[in-house]
Nucleic acid binder design. Structure first.
Length: 909
RNA sequence: GCCCGGGUGGCGAAAUUGGUAGACGCAAGGGACUUAAAAUCCCUUGGGGAGCAAUCCCCGUGCCGGUUCGAUUCCGGCCCCGGGCACCA
């Protein structure tokens, strides 16, 4: 055994041992309880970053811990391999995205292996491989058959120069990020998945996910956005000249394309009688309606604009705006009258219709009722355009005035209806019920649920993705690719040039024969959103070797995932899509569970200092923290920082996530090479609890490295006498010294705490417990002075042997290499990962004499030592005799003495 | 605006969920070893005050109040920070 800790050597040996016996191969075994531990798979961007290291270290610690506790653990790994960065890299380097992606996968796989993760690599998958994405296509076709996938036109950002669709984040100030061209909104046909059909279940089942972080559940509920209200209609008649009837907006939503029937109350047209449908959560204010507002895209707006050029211009202006919702929210509210009127469904009064730029076509029916008295936005709109404001809700003692908006105008909890005819004096709930009933009686509306969630548009006008398996035939229309022609293979040798989709230029891909009529036809060139790829990969891991089915019965053994670990940035989309996909798979009879991820851990981000200089002219320069020397005052406060290269000061800009743009990244590869994987792993576990952000610290890494060196050195010193056969059961602990007794007690106390913390995933304090144990062992008499004296007591040897065996097993999930090698070196066994998980010995915690804290009026005043079995009365006596207690009581009458057995006494005077 | 988290030393953080606040580590200061440095080891370290000293006292978990023998922990009100959603009707 080398007296020095050489991480390189240790890690090479441990990894070779694991490789030789294929240690992490997971095999289904009905007799054993399974544990499926999964970290979110990476996008193969080039090399691992610290976020990956943290994510996979946390996942690996859990996987190894559960393995040692006896579970049959599956921890697989794969690659989220389709996506835009590969196309960008391809343009920059003139290599096909496929080649770039496969190179990255090879390099990153090597890095993951060097970190020693207990991964079953036989199950590796990459979403860009046909044997994976074939099942995306197959499943899409099944959804198409069931009406869960459909086609409709959708609005996209269109770059007219590159002839390309851009993602929202590629549009900067309304211009394309590459071309600088003004971006147009363009409507093109796209495929959608009917996630809204599962909105209620996706919302309800959040209650089952009790092991998910509360905030993730809240974010999903928010996103799904259920509101309960009333959908009702304002009837109207078009003038005689209007012989073209507007369509109901619902029909534009693709409902007609689907296999489900459109809502029955949609298209009734009797003579020229039409209806303007709106949705409201405040039906109780319906008597206060003084106008209606419709979206620019609303058919009524289109109709009104035919003979009104000013209105047409206004509508064009609205349509030209951004599709980014965050920008919409801050836009100035504008409107213009259509000149049309509709009839109030209950009062029969005439209500003017306006076009409002704040009305969303995509929510509800693209039209709203305007109640200025009780909706803040309507109030300001009415003031701006001098529309009437009619109060219909009152709160006793609160005067209403149209001069300025007041918070209580929108209060639905304390309000009562007034000026509302037969609904007067009703509260919110009764009023909504009564008004909904009134509308229903006239066939003009009823209670309805409205969702914020929209159907999931999956078409991407991009090359590097899974082809959508549809063929466009001039005769037969859109024809699904037959199952026996799957997969539709994506050519891997295209090099995109930034203009349009390279697939569209590939005649060998585009030209095909119609499966239905056999005539020449064109293949769909859109590919699927990469979120489709990641929506079911976790299920695929259960049987990656099965080429004949999407999943097989092995999913029944492994799924659902017991522990999922990943970044909070996926709290909504990825997790929601995966939940949706699971429910559809279940309804198709492929799987039996309702939810894919039982427990979820969202790890925090990795931060580092940001240093910069702002020159008088030119751009800000950022400096890597590794090149900065920080000076501190006597108390350790940061007082200044200089760039090591030139000794000149730099400014500190706080902490931020590691990024290229701020030049504050730390390369994991360098870290591993300098300190070893175990140090890197120990540092990320020890420094912060998993859910918190992790602040990078080179000093902290040093500290972690120091601990592992100390561990190695200590193990080396003890190697001569450590013996797995030394049993604590053979020692009569009542006869050993107090020092030995308390040493063993500290070790078992730390173990107890560590087990508690492991169970609740507070791994940083598990690392602390390991450090405490080493501190105790180093101080244990008989261990540290053995080299000089050779008169080691049996008790000391036993404590050290037992303590090291506990310590190494506790550390095995965190620092597997050094634990594995020391376990062998000290003769505990061949494979620490098969050793039983350590459990504390309750007898070791027992004390003959215990220390009791004594308070006077709740303030700590002293301590007394009493026998562990002392009666309450004796403890009380001892406490009252304690000298500082006597001093603080100072003769005042003792009102009360509280005795907490085994803990404390509080004397109240 | 609505919904979630948070606020504890110079720093990362603990506190077995109402019972010794600051475990463990980092940084800092002092010391040992060394010709010297690195490495390693030992001691000190929340703030303030009294004492030659052993020691002792006061304050302290964002702020104000409440419950309690006792509150970082429970309740009410407020302030600040982070995150999510947001013309959603």
């Amino acid at each position: 055994m080398n007296p020095r800790y050489l991480p390189d050597e240790v890690e090479r040996k441990a990894q070779a041992d694991w490789e030789r016996v294929d240690a992490y191969r997971a095999v289904e075994d009905a007799r054993r309880e399974k544990f499926y531990c999964l970290s979110m798979f990476p996008y193969p961007s080039g090399k691992l970053h610290m976020g990956h290291v943290r994510n996979y270290t946390i996942g690996d610690a859990i996987a190894r811990y559960q393995r040692m506790r006896g579970f049959n653990v599956l921890q697989p790994m794969g690659w989220d391999a389709f996506g835009l960065p590969a196309e960008n890299a391809a343009m920059a380097n003139r290599v096909p995205p496929a080649a770039w992606t496969y190179d990255n996968i090879a390099y990153m796989k090597k890095q993951l292996k060097s970190l020693g993760f207990a991964i079953d690599w036989s199950r590796e998958l990459a979403t860009c491989k046909p044997d994976y994405y074939k099942w995306n296509q197959w499943f899409f076709l099944r959804m198409l058959e069931k009406g869960l996938a459909y086609k409709k036109t959708g609005v996209v950002n269109w770059d007219p120069v590159d002839q390309t669709v851009l993602a929202n984040e590629q549009v900067i100030d309304g211009r394309g990020w590459r071309t600088g061209a003004l971006i147009e909104k363009r409507e093109i046909p796209m495929y959608y998945l009917r996630i809204t059909a599962y909105a209620q279940e996706l919302l309800d089942d959040l209650d089952k996910l009790t092991e998910w972080p509360e905030r993730v559940r809240a974010m999903q509920a928010n996103w799904i956005g259920k509101s309960v209200g009333v959908r009702f209609a304002f009837p109207y008649k078009l003038s005689a000249s209007a012989n073209q009837l507007p369509l109901s907006p619902r029909e534009r939503d693709g409902v007609r394309d689907a296999a489900v029937a459109p809502p029955s109350n949609e298209r009734e047209v009797e003579g020229r009688e039409e209806k303007l449908w709106v949705f409201t959560t405040r039906a109780d204010t319906i008597m206060g309606v003084t106008f209606c507002a419709v979206a620019a895209e609303h058919p009524l707006a289109t109709h009104a604009a035919r003979n009104n050029s000013a209105l047409a211009d206004f509508i064009d202006e609205c349509k030209r705006g951004t599709v980014i919702e965050a920008d919409l929210a801050t836009m100035e509210k504008k409107g213009m009258p259509t000149g049309l009127s509709v009839t109030h469904p209950l009062t029969g009064e005439s209500v003017p219709v306006w076009v409002g730029n704040y009305v969303l076509m995509g929510y509800g029916d693209g039209a709203v009722m305007g109640v200025p008295a009780h909706d803040e936005r309507d109030f300001h709109f009415a003031k701006k355009y001098r529309l009437p404001i009619k109060q219909v809700i009152e709160v006793p003692g609160r005067p209403f005035s149209t001069d300025a908006w007041q918070e209580w105008y929108a209060d639905k909890g304390n309000g009562r209806c007034i000026h509302s005819g037969k609904y007067d004096a009703l509260g919110y709930i009764e009023a909504v019920d009564a008004i909904a009933a009134g509308l229903n009686a006239k066939g003009l509306g009823d209670k309805q649920v409205q969702w914020r969630l929209r159907d999931w548009g999956i078409s991407r006008q991009r090359y590097w993705g899974c082809p959508i398996p549809v063929i466009h035939c001039a005769t037969c229309g859109d024809v699904p690719v037959p199952d026996d022609q799957l997969p539709v293979i994506l050519p891997e040798d295209c090099v995109p040039d930034g203009t349009g989709n390279p697939l569209a230029k590939r005649a060998d891909f585009v030209n095909c024969l119609c499966p239905r009529c056999g005539k020449p036809a064109k293949r769909e060139t859109d590919t699927m959103d990469t979120f489709v790829d990641s929506s079911w990969y976790y299920a695929c891991f259960c049987g990656t070797d099965n080429a004949t089915a999407m999943v097989d019965k092995r999913v029944d053994y492994w799924m659902p995932v017991d522990q999922y670990i990943g970044g909070i940035e996926h709290a909504i989309l990825h997790l929601l899509y995966s939940r949706f996909w699971t429910k559809v798979m279940r309804d198709f009879g492929l799987v039996k569970y309702d939810e894919p991820f039982t427990r979820l851990l969202t790890q925090g981000m990795v931060l580092n200092d940001i240093y910069f200089r702002k020159p008088e002219s030119g751009r800000i320069a950022y400096y890597n923290p590794a090149d900065i020397d920080v000076t501190c005052d006597d108390k350790g406060n940061r007082v200044g920082a200089v760039l090591r290269a030139d000794g000149q000061p730099v400014e500190w800009d706080g902490l931020g996530t590691m990024s290229k743009s701020k030049n504050n990244g730390v390369d994991p590869q360098q870290l591993i090479e300098q300190y070893g994987a175990d140090t890197a792993r120990f540092f990320v576990i020890f420094t912060s609890p998993p859910e918190h952000t992790l602040e990078w610290s080179d000093y902290g890494v040093e500290g972690s490295s120091r601990f592992l060196k100390r561990l190695w050195t200590f193990a080396h010193e003890c190697k001569t006498f450590v013996d797995a056969k030394l049993s604590s059961a053979s020692i009569n602990w009542s006869e050993v010294s107090n020092e030995h007794k308390s040493a063993r007690r500290e070790i078992h106390l730390a173990l107890k705490q560590a087990n508690n913390d492991f169970a609740r995933h507070q791994f940083n304090t598990v690392a602390s417990a390991a450090m405490k144990i080493l501190n105790t062992l180093e101080r244990t008499p008989g261990a540290s002075d053995m080299l000089g004296h050779h008169k080691i007591q049996l008790a000391g040897q036993t404590i050290v042997s037992e303590g090291l065996s506990i310590l190494l097993r506790l550390l095995a999930p965190i620092t597997p290499h050094v634990s594995h090698v020391l376990w062998q070196e000290l003769g505990f066994g061949d494979d620490i990962s098969r050793a039983p998980w350590p459990v504390h010995d309750e007898a070791a915690l027992a004390q003959d004499v215990i220390e009791i804290v004594v308070q006077v009026n709740g303030k700590l005043r002293g301590k007394v030592s009493v026998p562990a079995d002392a009666s309450e009365e004796r403890v009380r006596e001892a406490a009252l005799r304690e000298e500082s207690v006597v001093r603080h009581v100072a003769g005042k009458p003792v009102l009360k003495v509280i005795v907490v057995p085994g803990k404390l006494v509080n004397v109240v005077v």
